[in-house]
Computed example of a mutant assay.
Amino acid sequence: MRERILDTADRLFYGRGIRAVGVDTVAAEIGISKRTLYNYFPSKDALIAAYLERRCNRLPITDAPPAEQILGAFDRLARVFADQGFRGCPFVNAVAEIGEPDHEANRIAIEFKEQRRLWFRDLLRRLKVRDAEGLAAQLQMLVDGAIATMLVRGDPAIADTAKDTARVLLTAAGIGLPKQRPMARSVRR
């Protein structure tokens, strides 16, 4: 039942917004009482925190070349952007919607963003980049900027532009990259 509640909360919170969806809507969607929902999550805030924690998937560092993994992050963005249900970063959305600095959602969002930055940093350290901390922060900002731009422009090709920018940053840091294959790009006006 806990997983059913979280599946439903995830779909509704991400699709409609955290503020727009009450626990009564989540319970009704599943076909349970609010009391049953509260047996699993004692408050809406607890449900929000569980929803966000569940989305905190750690990216593994694999045996693939580090630069390939870094650029692969932008390929993942392209796949996410292509989804018709894309509504931005659920962590940023939660922080913006809730608007309470002391809310648990803020802690979870910061933790998520930091784990992504550290993922970039650890890969950059494997590449022996001089300022791995600084470049990791730039790459994380590039991801966040691409997400925001995609929301505003609605053009999935933004992920390709972000990947091109990441290539420039990596090259400037002295990382040799394989030749880039030309990609078809859409241009939205």
Rank of each mutant, 00 (worst) to 15 (best):
E100T: 11
N106P: 01
I98F: 08
Q69R: 03
A82G: 12
Y38A: 07
D63E: 13
V21L: 00
A78V: 09
N57H: 11
L118W: 07
E53G: 02
R35S: 15
G85W: 02
V92E: 10
R116V: 15
D83W: 03
D75N: 10
E114Q: 09
K34H: 12
Q115M: 12
E97C: 01
I108C: 08
F81W: 11
R58S: 14
A50E: 09
V21F: 03
I98S: 06
W119D: 06
I98L: 15
E53K: 05
A64Q: 13
C89R: 02
R117Y: 02
N106L: 12
N39Q: 11
A82K: 05
F91W: 04
T25K: 08
F120A: 15
V23S: 09
Q84R: 10
L52G: 07
D83T: 00
I108E: 07
N39F: 05
T36C: 07
N39D: 11
P60C: 00
E68D: 13
D63A: 12
T62K: 01
G22I: 03
F81P: 14
A78Q: 12
E68F: 00
R54E: 13
G31E: 13
D75Q: 11
D45G: 13
R54D: 12
V26P: 02
R87W: 01
L37W: 10
G85D: 14
L59D: 05
D63M: 00
E53I: 02
A28H: 09
V26H: 01
V26G: 05
A109I: 04
G85C: 08
D102W: 07
Q115G: 06
D83G: 04
L52E: 03
E53Y: 05
V80N: 08
R116E: 15
G31P: 11
F86L: 02
N57L: 12
L118I: 13
K113E: 15
I30Q: 13
D24Q: 09
S43F: 10
